[in-house]
Design a protein around this nucleic acid. Sequence first.
DNA 1: GCCAACGTTGGC
DNA 2: GCCAACGTTGGC
Length: 152
Amino acid sequence: MTKYWLFKSEPNTYSIDDLKKDRKTHWDGVRNYQARNFMRDDMNVGDRVLFYHSNAHPSGVTGVATVCKKAYPDFTAQDERSHYYDPKATKDNPIWVMVDIAFVKKLSQLISLNELRNYPKLKNMILLKKGTRLSIQPLTKQEFDFISELKI
DNA sequence: GCCAACGTTGGC
DNA sequence: GCCAACGTTGGC
């Protein structure tokens, strides 16, 4: 069954334009157990992804992507030179995983966090709940469809 | 297992 | 840059 997700990224680090240029990328650097578990346990090839710019001006949804490779070890956790290095990660116990995502489309206009807050249909979105900082969040099909069709 | 201290996220 | 909210760490 297709599932729906929201991925946050700081555009300074990796933007929708970077993904458009690269066509696909590995989603490295997730160091939160809940987000990891979503990737490891629930994500499958073909799942749909909303691409969200965080720490941006403004922050908001900027595009759509799709999962194109199931979870596998995040090798940056074992690379001492990486910003994402985790000394506890080993070959036998990589701890952290990543998936690959592929570019689908960039929205004609960013849908800002403020705009999202205005839609009653989205009032239960995890993103809009106070205090949630999860960088990978599940969406309902209704949420995904509604948002991805707001701007062509 | 509790919880204070610390680090991080991310909107503003 | 500020700071609220949250997750993690580590002493006990």
